[in-house]
Design a binder for these strands. Structure first.
Lengths: 123, 123
DNA sequence: ATTGGTAGCTTGTTATACAAAGTACTAAAG
DNA sequence: CTTTAGTACTTTGTATAACAAGCTACCAAT
């Protein structure tokens, strides 16, 4: 039971949600998505992302179209289907419920990260 | 790709953290833990909990001792080892980072449910 | 034609939540 | 004493998904 492993486990299921929201804002191809996730410190590797995109596409949540690139091979640009948008919203709710459940269970120990924007932070 | 399944995936890794925090407050046996999780709407079944407790014990994060019950067979009461407490804190940080990462990725859509500091568990 | 970089894909491994069935102990009823 | 019901704990098999590592394919410049 390694900490790294638990971290991996925690990510499961969350990735789908994140990726759907990324694509929902603007059509994107794999490297775009990896970049956004990396900025958010949600490290993901190609071997994880590509199968996930294929699963989402096969479930009818995404479509893609090939687009030329000015420098390199063509890219698959994904976008959400209506069903995908609906599912994304359901996942959002599931995620909220999970966060809430963990807060309840652990005793509301989740202090917001020390980002400066939140104002109603006591404790 | 079913929603139920994704929910299951999201739970992975989080359970360990929740269970450690439950035990950290007060030694507990399986049914105690199930009750707390159920109140928080984190449904878990025995077949999940028992192996998890055993894993945590084998990793040196928990110890247990048998205690008689006034009505039924004896119970294994678990409590945290120092190592377990340390690991719990690490998991707490991992969880925070994950919540933060999802907020960043999805565009800060997570409304806090309860901002006041008192967390009475709705029974 | 060769090289280097980008983009996408595949295979095998591992971990874990779950369903379902099984074991063991206690107390109360027949 | 045996049976029954209830509680506590355990085990087995299945499915899923993230990962590491390697692969193929396309494009442009040498």
């Amino acid at each position: 039971m390694k900490l790294d492993n638990t971290k991996v486990q925690m990510k499961k299921g969350v990735l789908e949600y994140c990726i759907l929201t990324i694509i929902s804002r603007e059509e994107a191809y794999a490297s775009d998505i990896l970049e956004v996730l990396k900025k958010a410190r949600l490290i993901v590797v190609e071997g994880t992302l590509y199968p996930l995109l294929t699963r989402l596409k096969n479930s009818g949540l995404l479509t893609y179209e090939w687009k030329e690139s000015s420098s390199g091979p063509p890219r698959k640009y994904y976008k959400l289907t209506p069903k995908g948008r609906e599912f994304m919203e359901e996942l959002g709710q599931t995620w909220e419920e999970l966060v809430y459940a963990v807060e309840l269970t652990t005793g509301e120990t989740i202090p917001k990260h020390d980002k400066t924007q939140n104002n109603e932070q006591n404790s």
